[in-house]
Structures are given as C-alpha cells and as structure tokens.
C-alpha cells in the first residue's frame, strides 16, 4: 500500500480518523474561544470599572494563567474541575457523573483563553475615545445599551488583531488535549502514524490541515477587521 493510500477516507486508510479528530478539535476550539470571549468581556469590564478587590483578584487570575504553562493548567483544571463537580454532586446526594472530554476541554481551554482575552479587550476598550462614552452617558443611555451600541462596536476594530491571535492560539492549544488522552486531531494522527509507521505522511498531513485552518482564519479575520473599521476615517490608520 503506498503512503498516500494510507490517507484514504475508507477503513484501510486513516483519513476518516483524522477528519473525526479535526471535527473534535474545531468543536473544542470554537467552544473554548466563545467561553474565553465571554470571560474576557466580563473580566475587561471588571478590570476597568470594578472595585479595588475585584480588580486585584482579576490581576491575580490573568497573571497566574499567563505565567503557568497551558499543559499544567489543563491538567490541574482537568482533574480539579471534574473532581469538584463530582464532590458537589455527592454533597447534594446525587450520583457521580462522567464529564465528557469535549465539555472538560472547552471549560479548561476557555478559562485559559479568558485570561488572554481579558487583556486584549481591556486594551481595546480603553482605546475607545472618551468623548463617545461621555456623549452616550449625557444622552442618558443605560450601561447595558451603552456597551452594546457604543463601546463594543467601537472597540472591535482595535480588538480584532489581538482576538485573531487568540483564535489561532485556541486552535493550536487543542493539540495539548492529546496529552490528557482526548482524541483530537494530533492524537488521532499519532495513533495512525504509530500503527502504520508512516510518521512523516501523517504528521505532515495533520500539519497541512492546521496550516489551512490558520491561513483561512487569517483571511477571515482580515475581512472582519475591515468590516469592523468601516466608517473610520482613513487618516486614523495612515497617521501612525
């Protein structure tokens, strides 16, 4: 059997396994990125408008998460979170549950992503011109509407380059879940490569898939940034 036939989608080939791994990877990356954005938005608002205690606690969260290797955070949270949920369930008199790999992966990577996106979004919100927010307050806009109509749309242009980086990190960090035995693309690849001994074929195929995701995302985010910056005067970009 030639090496390229090993990549065929039907069973003697391993292509189907790789695609299943890819689906798992993307599912986790999307979920973790969304969770991270939610945590990041709340964290950024907390860091800017929160009280001194909340601000210090958020500072501890972002500093610790960004200084400890993701792999170790994943292990601590992976074992810790499932243990915690089960202990709470037992206290409440329910049975223990088995938390699925997808949910645990999303929760764990989401907490890590949240720390990074807190910083990205905080910088972007601070870059929104003060006058805009003051004008909205002077018009009597409630805080929620102000965030939805003024702050978040205006900060999007500044935030998108940082958020694009975070998305690329999210897709690549799903590979770390291979270490805790979750069958995403990288682990499926290693199993296929180990069984067939065609290491170069499979690792390069997986690399090509990851690279395609990266290049596609870069193109998409560039379009999104152009869309988010629509209506901004061209001078603002050129004047730097």
């Amino acid at each position: 059997m030639s090496t390229l036939e090993l990549l065929a989608l039907q069973p003697p080939g391993w292509g189907g396994n790789l695609l299943r791994g890819l689906a798992n990877s993307i599912q986790i990356a999307v979920g973790a990125y969304g969770l991270g954005l939610a945590i990041g938005t709340a964290g950024a608002y907390g860091k800017i408008y929160g009280g001194p205690v909340l601000r210090d606690l958020l500072e501890v969260y972002t500093t610790v998460v960004r200084a400890v290797p993701e792999l170790i955070l994943i292990l601590i949270l992976y074992f810790g979170l499932t243990d915690l949920v089960n202990q709470i369930l037992v206290e409440m008199g329910r049975d223990r549950i088995q938390i699925s790999g997808v949910i645990a992966g999303i929760a764990v990577l989401g907490v890590v992503q949240g720390a990074y996106s807190t910083e990205v979004l905080r910088g972007a919100i601070l870059a929104v011109p003060h006058g805009q927010i003051e004008a909205a307050r002077a018009m009597g806009m409630p805080a929620g509407m102000l965030a939805r109509r003024i702050t978040l749309p205006l900060m999007l242009g500044n935030a998108i380059p940082g958020l694009a980086n975070l998305w690329l990190i999210a897709t690549k960090d799903t590979a770390l879940l291979a270490v805790v035995g979750f069958s995403e693309l990288t682990l499926e690849t290693r199993q296929a490569a180990g069984t067939t001994k065609a290491y170069f074929t499979f690792f390069m195929a997986a690399g090509a898939i990851y690279l395609a995701i990266t290049l596609l995302s870069q193109w998409g985010f560039a379009r999104a940034e152009r869309w988010a910056r629509r209506g901004e005067p061209a001078v603002a970009a050129g004047a730097r």
Partner: peptide
C-alpha cells in the same frame, strides 16, 4: 515562519522525534 506559526508545537515535536527518529 508561516508554517512554524501555523501548526501546533506538539505536532512539530512529534514530527521531528518520531519522523527523524524512525528515518
């Protein structure tokens, strides 16, 4: 630079170790 930045480090490590190691 694009290839290195576009693929997970874990995959690169395994490619180099298992790939070169078997070659």
């Amino acid at each position: 630079c694009t290839i290195i930045r576009g693929t997970p480090l874990l995959l690169q490590i395994w490619l180099i170790y298992y790939g070169l190691g078997s070659l």
